[in-house]
Amino acid sequence: MTDAILLAIMALSLAAMYLLLKKGFRPAAPPAARAPGPAYVPAQPGAPVKHWSDGGRMLTEVLAESRYQATVRELAGEHGDQGADTRLQAVLAVDPLNPYDDKPVAVFVAGRMTGYLSPKDAQAFREIQRREEIDGQPISCDAAIRGGSVWQGKHLAYAVWLDMDLSR
């Protein structure tokens, strides 16, 4: 009896493999295109509940998105051909309404949207918030806007760095 059941299972497995190989594997459907229209911008965060500092080491980089580069360039101010190193205050806020990411952390510098934390940094940020019992609350920290120097006749891109160590 057991042998008959095992033979039936083997026969069904072989039939399924034959059908898969005969028909081939179909590639996954391409992702749906984003609907045209205005780009999503998160809501301005409220007043920060805490100011984090890591002694001015500026270890966390904000993800550079091309659509925020003009804003970051304006915030960097005039610096000639030398690279900018403009110091401002940043506010980080969890963005639960973002339609493109499920757990993003938006970064506002001087009240203007400049980008997001990387997914790994956003997770670390949320874990620290949970530990300190301030889940989902806006946090401030010092920020540095660097870049924009001239190299081979062209201005380099700008980057926003935050005075917080999320690698711990």
Score class of each variant (00 low, 15 high):
M1F: 13
D3S: 08
I5R: 14
A8W: 03
A11P: 03
L12Q: 14
S13G: 14
S13I: 15
L14H: 06
A15Y: 09
A15S: 12
A15P: 01
A16S: 14
M17R: 03
Y18K: 05
L21Q: 13
L21F: 14
L21I: 10
K22L: 15
K23S: 10
G24Q: 07
F25L: 11
F25E: 09
R26W: 11
P27H: 04
P27W: 08
A28K: 15
A29C: 03
A32S: 14
A33C: 05
A33E: 15
R34I: 00
R34V: 07
A35F: 11
A35M: 13
P36K: 14
G37H: 13
G37N: 10
P38N: 13
A39D: 12
A39C: 00
A39M: 05
Y40H: 11
Y40F: 13
P42L: 04
P42V: 02
A47I: 10
P48T: 02
R57S: 09
R57Q: 13
M58N: 10
L59H: 09
T60F: 04
V62I: 11
V62Y: 02
L63I: 12
S66A: 12
S66W: 07
S66L: 10
Y68T: 14
Y68L: 01
T71C: 04
T71P: 00
V72W: 02
H79T: 05
D81S: 13
G83V: 09
A84L: 04
T86A: 12
V91Y: 00
V91K: 00
L92Q: 08
A93S: 15
V94W: 05
L97K: 01
Y100A: 08
D101M: 10
D102C: 06
D102P: 10
D102Q: 11
P104Q: 03
A106C: 08
A106D: 05
V107G: 02
F108N: 05
F108G: 04
V109E: 02
V109N: 01
A110Q: 12
R112N: 08
T114V: 15
G115W: 03
L117Q: 02
P119V: 12
D121H: 11
D121G: 02
A122D: 02
E127P: 00
I128H: 07
I128Y: 08
I128R: 08
S140L: 11
C141M: 14
A143I: 09
I145H: 01
G147K: 02
G148T: 03
S149F: 07
S149M: 08
V150D: 06
Q152F: 07
Q152N: 10
G153I: 06
G153P: 07
K154E: 14
K154M: 03
H155R: 13
A157C: 01
W161G: 01
L162S: 05
L162C: 03
L162Y: 06
L162D: 04
D165K: 11
D165E: 05
D165C: 04
L166R: 01
L166C: 06
R168A: 00
R168M: 02
